[in-house]
Design a protein around this nucleic acid. Structure first.
Lengths: 224, 224
DNA sequence: GCTCCAAATAATATCGATTTTTATTGACTC
DNA sequence: GAGTCAATAAAAATCGATATTATTTGGAGC
């Protein structure tokens, strides 16, 4: 028998967890620029916490390839380059292709419903008004597409690569003109193919979506 | 001629680094069994260091998926299961296939020489006399095969998956009888194909090697 | 016997201070 | 000037102690 715990205690995350979440966001959005030295004392100030949680959060962020650690020389935000961007894009294409096919082939009503829901929420969020919110909903939708694949390690890789890619989206944010594109239609066609259980078509639509975005970003990132 | 890095013995590694290396080995070899709770105090005793380096090393090990961290409930060695083993094997096959093809297609004399060298060193090490040494040489050989692929993130994934797989090799160590196999011949045919620049044949030989090993281990791991 | 709750215990997480290492500066030599 | 080296400054790494949180234990009531 399952007994629900009272959970009276405040569910505040630990200082490490809070630091991890905030630093992660700061790196993804570019508030902490790629390649920047991450000094413990400075971050201590920003986060209002001791050195231990900061160090531990930074160590955890190396898992995500968002922070590089050099023994006895501290931490720095992972560097960005056009080459890295291309590698990420290429790997995403092969790995998400794999994951999406598995996911669609194992379709269940529950999964389909959660997918429709994620899509709806993303649709409802206006990118211009609320970039942060849109980016979150966008990630949820894309990960939900893959989520039905029974392969935790693969999904972890995909999630990591997604985040690494997002950083480049923020990097290129100013110069990219999203108005020229119809991403909504692209998302719709991925969703439709997935919902009718067509793994081949959904994978094709997904990769097309990524490659289009890739070309778009490529211009903006040429400076790197 | 390729010269191995002389390991810069002038400066000893930090306590964190030392803890990381040792804990990593202990988890890979099963000295710290899969799923086991990793108590800071206990590890402090083993490593003869403070709590901070231990915590930091454990945080770094989550990068490698060798340690799981649950906020405010500490760390534990990553759990092992037959399902996980199969997933690792499957992912390795697709990702190393990709990496090896890239690597072979970009072949250079330097790379070929380093490959021959890595193979020779592995050959020279007797598995029965020196398991630890053989495992190291074996990893160097396999990673060297892929090393010429110009894709750092892919190589990182392959290295991670390799280590996760090694753990299962140690788990199954007692019950598997390697005498029934001729892994030397398999390694040789991968090497030969790679050296003559035949990406297709080398990839095929590599995957065959992994699948054979997989079938072997599968029996031994049935208990999981 | 079973559940619920509170005290006691054990472990994690965090802090502040100290030690160790790296980076920088500036005088000195060639 | 360029290079070397010691002294200084800055930062990272580590320690020991404390605060916080989870887990266990031991009744009291039903």
């Amino acid at each position: 028998m399952i007994v629900q715990k009272p959970t009276t205690s405040t569910n505040e995350p630990s200082a490490t967890q809070a630091a991890y979440t905030l630093l992660r966001k700061m790196i993804l959005t570019g508030e902490l620029p790629a390649g920047e030295k991450l000094k413990i004392e400075k971050l201590r100030g920003i986060l209002g916490t001791g050195a231990s949680p900061v160090r531990e959060a930074l160590s955890l962020l190396t898992s995500d390839m968002l922070v590089e650690r050099i023994d006895q020389k501290g931490f720095r935000a992972a560097s960005a380059s056009l080459k890295n961007f291309r590698e990420i894009l290429s790997l995403r294409c092969t790995m998400e292709d794999m994951a999406l096919r598995q996911s669609v082939e194992r379709a269940t009503p529950d999964w389909e419903e959660s997918l429709v829901l994620a899509h709806h929420r993303m649709q409802k969020t206006d990118r211009k008004e609320n970039v942060q919110g849109f980016e979150e909903a966008h990630k949820v939708f894309h990960m939900q597409l893959l989520n039905n694949a029974d392969s935790p390690v693969l999904l972890r890789f995909c999630s990591q690569l997604y985040d690494l890619n997002i950083r480049y989206r923020y990097l290129a944010a100013e110069s990219v003109d999203y108005r020229k594109r119809n991403t909504a239609a692209e998302h719709r066609s991925i969703l439709d193919a997935a919902l009718r259980g067509d793994a081949e078509a959904s994978a094709e639509a997904l990769l097309d979506h990524y490659k289009r975005t890739g070309s778009y970003l490529e211009e903006a990132l040429a400076a790197l």
